[in-house]
Nucleic acid binder design. Structure first.
Length: 576
RNA sequence: CGGCCCGUAGCUCAGCUGGUAGAGCACGUGACUCUUAAUCAUGGGGUCGAGGGUUCGAUCCCCUCCGGGCCGACCA
């Protein structure tokens, strides 16, 4: 029986599937299919003079079909791109039996099907490099129609653009939107380039716990979970900083991790609940050294991805060429507001903030106000990569106090395209100072700051044994990828960005309809007519239901004997 | 959490403040031996996101809900 939930096109494809099987062809063959080249290799290397690619075997998905009687053109898409295939009846079927062309290819194959093609490469009269198919095999039959995107002279028609569908069904997005695929290839290039840089320096890639009994290393609200055997609360990490520093205590001179972190906070085009950071810790270095390292690393990444240090991002051309501009936070504020706040006390800072239109309130300390002024007045204006150094101590409980300026810490962020891309410091290794800083955080926590850090006794104990002076870095992989791929949203650089679960419409089980006295063969039809629950049948007009059911029966050629109005009345009476 | 916008065929979109829906592509059938957004002819395809209200009558007006986008708030 026909499934009433399927669209016309899906029904036709399932029928094609059966016909393929009845011709003795397996639409999902088990055997491996050997390919000896790919679309891009052919398109970039084929030449008539060389007469190469005369025995190619490739596999891919059918993306377009242009059928004209005994000759056809299709485009197939493989891992590297698209290539046109010329399918001529008598080349594909040299013998008497033309079934493979006339029936299988022309009638039973569809856009979206995955096939293998063997043949020779040539150039058509229109000048397009194509494969002349002498062999064609179905590798996987597609029973759902793909979005059809057309293109001519670089102009895209009917692009598949609905963000909801693109993110929930990323596979479709990847099939029909080549630029999406390209962004993800660049993302992997970025992490490969970074890893190569770090390995070449001799640092050790490590893995540390994602499930942590205490969350630390950043200011954020965590996800909470529970371990059954331990009967204990665990948190998904918000950062891995404290574990990596314990490894530095343990004697590794350089450790890094590409870490998925989880923060239970708002979502927007710059924030996803899970995101990736690369954290790096190097012993006997300080934040000045780390700035040089970041410049060198990001410049290399830009060169590896784009072949140049210049990257177009929105309206801006961003240049990652070293050296980057450097400002202390006070200098940056002076640069963009003309006001020198370096010597101001809390009252003067509050006055200045108000004058500048920056919102402040009584709960904010000196550090928070400075940070707020910077965030409002400077950050968005920093388009070219710029280091901002020397932050107020209140904002940075894990950073070492500044070697020469009171009230500041040795910390820097790199700002690019108006957004932070990394955060680093000379790590605090004085265990007594560290304990005091944690205690200040505890006070903030008691005042209701949900993001205040918790005191991590294990970490403190570790650095009491002595941690070498260390430079530490956290660099946001998603944000850096956004810049390197000119993406407007973090969703465009995550394969599967977090989406709200769609609620399925309430639907009663068929048994519930059966219990209510509806004959089993009519249940799907009743549901198709819009009555997904037994409840929804109560009190409705028998004649109108009769009309709908008989109509559906006829329309879908189900061939059931129509019930009489009295039959339907009796069903409905039992319900009421 | 607040403001604005969106949800109609497999896809991209029309639809006059109200009379139960249209186009292009895709799909079916037929024609066509080098096409390329193939073409020509013809046909089918829709609980108009869900529920409720107003109305003789709702894709359209009102309310609630679901999902998404943008901006802001919060936040790195």
């Amino acid at each position: 029986m026909i499934n009433l939930d399927l669209s016309e096109q899906e029904i036709i494809r399932r029928q094609s599937l059966e016909e393929i099987r009845s011709l003795g062809i397996n639409p999902y063959p088990a055997a491996e299919y050997n390919v000896n080249t790919n679309s891009t290799e052919i398109l970039s290397n084929y030449s008539v003079e060389k007469n190469n690619f005369q025995d190619v075997s490739i596999a891919g998905r059918i993306m377009t079909r242009r059928i004209m009687g005994n000759a056809s053109f299709i485009e197939i898409q493989d891992d590297k791109g698209k290539i046109q295939v010329y399918v001529k009846r008598d080349n594909l079927c040299p013998g008497e039996d033309k079934t493979l062309y006339n029936t299988v290819f022309k009638k039973l194959l569809d856009i979206g099907d995955i096939i293998g093609v063997k043949g020779n490469v040539f150039i058509t009269q229109m000048g397009e490099t194509s494969i002349n198919a002498v062999e064609l095999i179905i590798l996987s039959k597609s029973i759902k129609p793909l979005p059809v995107v057309k293109e001519k002279d670089g102009v895209i028609y009917d692009a598949f653009t609905d963000p909801d569908q693109r993110y929930r069904q990323r596979h479709l997005d990847l099939i029909v939107n080549p630029h999406v695929r390209d962004a993800f290839l660049k993302r992997t290039k970025l992490t490969n380039s970074m890893r190569e840089f770090l390995n070449q320096k001799g640092y050790l890639e490590v893995e540390t716990p994602i499930l942590q009994p205490l969350y630390g290393g950043a200011a954020a609200r965590p996800f909470k979970t529970h371990h059954n055997t331990l009967d204990q609360t665990l948190y998904l990490r918000i950062a891995n900083e404290l574990y990596l520093k314990r490894l530095i205590v343990g004697g590794f001179d350089g450790v890094y991790e590409f870490a998925k972190d989880f923060r239970n906070e708002g979502m927007d085009r710059f924030h996803n609940p899970e995101f990736t950071q690369m954290e790096l810790y190097v012993a006997y270095k300080d934040y000045n050294w780390m700035m040089n390292t970041v410049e060198e690393m990001v410049e290399k990444i830009a060169l590896d991805i784009h072949g140049t240090t210049e990257v177009q991002v929105g309206d801006h051309k961003i240049n990652f060429k070293r050296p980057w501009k450097r400002f202390t936070m006070f200098e940056a504020i002076k640069e963009f507001t003309g006001i020198d706040i370096s010597q101001m006390d809390e009252n003067q800072l509050t006055e200045t903030a108000k004058k500048l239109g920056v919102e402040v309130n009584d709960t904010m300390g000196k550090g928070k106000i400075i940070d707020e002024i910077f965030g409002e007045m400077c950050e968005a204006k920093l388009i070219q990569p710029t280091f901002i150094t020397d932050y107020p101590v209140e904002m940075s409980p894990l950073a070492k106090k500044h070697r020469s300026v009171d009230g500041l810490v040795e910390r820097f962020e790199a700002i690019c395209n108006g957004k932070e891309i990394c955060n680093a410091y000379s790590e605090l290794n004085d265990p007594i100072d560290q304990r005091e800083r944690f205690e200040q955080q505890l006070i903030l926590g008691k005042r209701g700051d949900e993001e205040a850090m918790v005191l991590d006794e294990d970490f403190l104990k570790a650095i009491e044994y002595g941690m070498p002076p260390t430079a530490g870095l956290g660099i946001g992989i998603d944000r850096l990828t956004m810049i390197m791929t000119n993406s407007q949203s973090i969703q465009d650089v995550l394969f599967f960005p977090q989406m709200r679960q769609e609620k399925k419409s309430q639907k009663d089980d068929t048994s519930k309809f059966a219990d209510a006295g509806i004959p089993s063969e009519w249940i799907p039809i009743v549901q198709k007519s819009g009555h997904l629950t037994v409840e929804s049948l109560k009190g409705i007009n028998a004649a109108s239901l009769h009309n709908k059911l008989c109509g559906t029966n006829k329309k879908h050629k189900l061939g059931l004997a129509n019930p009489s109005i009295d039959d339907i009345k009796s069903w409905l009476e039992k319900l009421n």
